[in-house]
Nucleic acid binder design. Structure first.
Lengths: 364, 364
DNA sequence: GCCTGATGCTCAAACGTTTCAGCACTTCCT
DNA sequence: AGGAAGTGCTGAAACGTTTGAGCATCAGGC
């Protein structure tokens, strides 16, 4: 029907169709019969613009499908409306987990609610990493950043906090008291998981496979395990194997615990991936889970539901984390100088088959 | 040296530290002693700028840590350097899969290489969906978009293609011949999986649990299955149960096939999630996999590695898909009028335990 | 000596937005 | 009547970038 001239010198009005020029303030202004400034102020609900004009402007804007040009707005404002989500490559073990996706879903819903957009920087390549997120922030493409990293003393993290740009960290960063962070109560989560084995299943000889202790997450989960064990009124025996959150580390850790502790009754792994590794090791030694050795994981990002037996685990509310972090970030951006806070979200124990036979949804 | 008065009134020179003003072309210009235009042209390697000036400018830019303001550049250019990744909520089953993360990794590496950034729009909420990605594109925050959707006739998809904005679709869209797409050869993948059951394991009575047939992906996988079955020289019996890619649909589909086909020897599910559901159903009926019924899934996004037995599946190269789609998109953006092409990436059969005992990496 | 062409830069304008000062007009108060 | 205050808008400027036109300067060819 309508000839498509693309850049179009000939046709005048193009109500719709491919290649039509974007609607600007000027377009609305000429429709309504006021200046672009008035349109801008009307849309911002400025008190000095008359009611009638505001309504006319809003109607025209809706009619024409006006959406403010983000570049123009950002340039004028001196900062972008976008927020960046940075995943430094130190969080490699995060890739392949639904964790990050859940985080993103949370962040994007908050961003949608704030009429903002989400820019992401995942950096699989070590070499380009600094350049990539650095470029995003230095180019002022984002008005703030959410950093999903796990390593303590990651130099990137403190550098970013130091830039003065609004930044929210995901996780606990006790050594960065000046930073705003949103994390989960891993100590309580690990204590709940361990307490479940102790109290509900009456087990007393429990080994823990921890993550790398440069990660606060790994430290906290170990701390929760230790606290629960030492607070048990009856005599307990605890063991520790240090892993790196990988399946292989789970196998190795389980082997180490089995060889080192006589009468091992349960293994609490610091994440589901390692619990799965431990499961494989136990199975290869002919040990049954949970009859011979009970098993508990951590994260509940999808792995734990699929194994046989299904894994008892501790759910980390990733989507909530992302949402909270984004909300916090928008608060920082708006207030320019928000108070420094460290939010800690609660966790939830998810009992499944691998710790014993109670409360297991049975297969029909 | 040069006093930076900008935001703070007290301190004079801040070579570094929080709150320092961003470096602009003007800053470099005043250091080098030329006009901002000359700096811009020098950095763009314009032939009319002298060698000496170029070198001085580049040195100063490096020294000051100059990064072009993205808003300024986008405003001037009339389009952003970012690309958007849109995940319409029709692709719900994608959430929670590492698929999307892998896709993102591929897209971001390409974007890094092109000095671009990635904007993402995941829209868990039906109501805000149109508004969210619409806003991104209408605000010209992105110079192009990659759409990861699955449903045929998703109105969003054709609308986006019609905007005239450079768009690359992920998946096969035979009904949108004017659109650029990057997909996988699902027909060949499904045929390979089915052929594996037929030729390598000698099975002849095979049921397929398909996805919803509004999805091209589901159609293609069914088509591959059918083709392989009918091309088999010996007499075969095929069955079909239509599912929706969910675990429950896998259970239901398996039940339907088991009840409907006597002597069922194998089930080929259109994704791993449904294969897992089928596994649960088989197990609850006391049937062993693979001894009584062989099982094959599709996707290899993580599920298949974890089940017991591990699932034979077909690997979808998600990271590659993302990378290719981004490369294609940058091609479109640069060329302004690239040719319409439909790339199809090859797939790979991943034999594991659930189809039989050959070539299984045994547990040590 | 003058034209031609090349070289190396500057200037101005423009992208779309927001904001601030200011103008014109009305209304109210004394 | 005359000033003050309020109302509703306009015009200009600015954010940082890119680019085409234009202005010098200089080398070489006749």
């Amino acid at each position: 029907m309508t000839p498509v001239e693309q850049v179009n010198k000939t046709s005048k009005a193009q109500p719709s169709g491919p290649g039509r020029a974007p609607v600007t303030l000027r377009d609305i202004a000429s429709v309504v019969g006021v200046s672009p400034s008035a349109v801008s102020m009307a849309l911002a609900d400025h008190p000095r613009i008359g009611r009638a004009t505001k309504e006319a402007v809003r109607a025209a804007a809706r009619e024409l499908g006006y959406v403010a040009n983000s570049a123009g707005r950002a340039l004028r404002a001196g900062r972008s409306t976008s927020i960046a989500v940075v995943v430094p490559n130190t969080a490699q073990h995060v890739f392949g987990h639904p964790y990050f996706m859940q985080l993103l879903v949370g962040v994007t819903s908050s961003a949608n609610a704030h009429d903002s957009t989400v820019l992401i920087s995942t950096n699989p390549d070590q070499h380009h990493e600094v350049a990539a997120y650095d470029r995003i922030l230095r180019s002022q493409a984002a008005g703030g950043a959410i950093i999903a990293s796990a390593a303590i003393n990651d130099p990137n993290v403190s550098r970013m906090v130091d830039t003065g740009l609004p930044v929210v960290l995901i996780g606990r960063y006790p050594h960065l008291p000046q930073a705003v962070s949103v994390g989960v109560d891993d100590v309580a989560g690990a204590a709940a998981a361990t307490g479940h084995l102790l109290s509900d299943h009456g087990l007393r000889r429990i080994g823990h496979i921890s993550g790398p202790l440069e990660h606060q997450t790994a430290l906290d989960r170990y701390e929760g395990f230790r606290a629960a064990m030492t607070q048990c009124p009856e005599p307990c025996v605890q063991g520790l194997a240090i892993g790196d959150f990988s399946e292989q580390a789970g196998r190795d850790g389980a082997a180490q615990l089995l060889d080192g502790m006589s009468g091992l009754q349960a293994i609490f792994a610091a994440n589901d991936e390692m619990a799965y590794g431990a499961l494989l090791e136990l199975r290869s030694r002919g040990l049954r889970v949970p009859q011979d050795v009970a098993l508990v994981g951590y994260d509940d990002f999808g792995v734990s539901r699929l194994t046989t037996p299904t894994l008892t685990t501790v759910r980390v509310p990733a989507e909530d984390l992302g949402w909270q972090a984004a909300e916090r970030l928008f608060g920082l951006i708006d207030a320019a100088a928000g108070e420094v806070t460290h939010s800690v979200l609660p966790i939830e124990l998810v009992p499944r088959e691998s710790c014993g036979t109670h409360s297991v949804p049975s297969v029909p």
